[in-house]
């Protein structure tokens, strides 16, 4: 564990020295949280129409009228709560997508800087190396997610209908941000680090890692169309599946990490 912390400390120190590398993640995170504010608040204000006047949101009104936390809201508030809750998934996704470049570059970057061989010559095991590399991109992504979530809640409290803010603090919303988000991020970044140790181009690793975006995007679409709702049992099921995927990815990552090929074949 101490070796993981030692290398993790290096990863974070390196990021602090080069914060620009995380700028895309910050931008993606904060831009993504603007989107629901446009849909739920800014566009209706400019158009001079209420969301509840449109029949497009009837599903949302029906869905949330059934939930106890929504019953106190008027139709406009219920629709806003529905929109803000759906986009929580995007809030989880955006920082991960942004920090993907950090993960994708993690092993290839060491190789290109010729710092991998001295590192491999220490007692560091493959598990320790990969764990530190994944955590080095995961922790900043989680911090960014938390920051985005704080800004998101603050924005909702200030701009949305009264009561919408409280409707976001449901167990399922919090579980999406604090359980599903980190687990999905871990899976995505592990995939990117695994790819980083196999391919010799950071762009390839980034593209492979980005595959994790597909199921999350699908989840967002399913929610928006009302085909699927992230209830607590659904969240628990997905979280367990993601935990299994993460354990599997670590084992696969260790098996795929071929020190000899990296040292002798990469240029």
């Amino acid at each position: 564990m101490s070796r993981v912390l030692a290398l993790l400390g290096k990863e974070l120190a390196d990021l602090r020295q080069n914060p620009a590398v995380f700028l895309p993640a910050v931008l993606t995170g904060f831009l993504s949280i603007l989107l629901p504010f446009f849909i739920a608040i800014i566009v209706p204000q400019f158009a001079g129409e209420r969301l509840s006047d449109s029949s497009d949101f009837e599903i949302a009104v029906e869905m949330y009228r059934r939930q106890p936390s929504m019953r106190a809201l008027d139709p406009e508030g219920a629709i806003q709560a529905w929109i803000f809750q759906q986009f929580l998934v995007l809030l989880v996704l955006a920082p991960v997508a942004g920090s993907m470049s950090v993960a994708a570059y993690s092993v290839i970057g060491e190789k290109q800087a010729r710092s991998l061989e001295p590192l491999l010559a220490t007692p560091l095991t493959t598990f320790e190396l990969l764990a530190a590399k994944v955590l080095g991109s995961l922790l900043p992504a989680l911090m960014l997610t938390l920051a985005c979530f704080g800004v998101y809640l603050g924005g909702v409290a200030l701009l949305a209908q009264p009561g919408v803010f409280l409707a976001l603090l449901t167990p399922s919303s919090l579980a999406i941000v604090f359980v599903l988000g980190p687990l999905a991020a871990l899976a995505a970044l592990q995939l990117a680090v695994c790819a980083s140790s196999r391919v010799n181009d950071a762009r390839s690793a980034q593209q492979i890692g980005a595959l994790i975006i597909l199921p999350i995007a699908a989840l967002l679409v399913l929610q928006l169309t009302g085909s699927f709702l992230l209830t607590i049992p659904a969240i628990v099921f997905i979280a367990l599946a993601l935990a299994g995927v993460n354990a599997g990815l670590m084992l696969v990552g260790i098996a795929l990490f071929d020190r000899e090929s990296i040292l002798t074949r990469w240029r």
């Binding site: 912390l5 290398l7 400390g9 290096k10 120190a13 710092s115 001295p118 590192l119 007692p123």
Partner: peptide, 22 residues
């Protein structure tokens, strides 16, 4: 090749290895 972490200080470079060696 030396393979140092260019952005990190000399001290930090050595400190990481001191910790990796326990």
């Amino acid at each position: 090749t030396p393979g140092l972490w260019d952005r990190l200080s000399v001290r930090r470079n050595l400190l990481v290895y001191a910790r990796l060696h326990g």
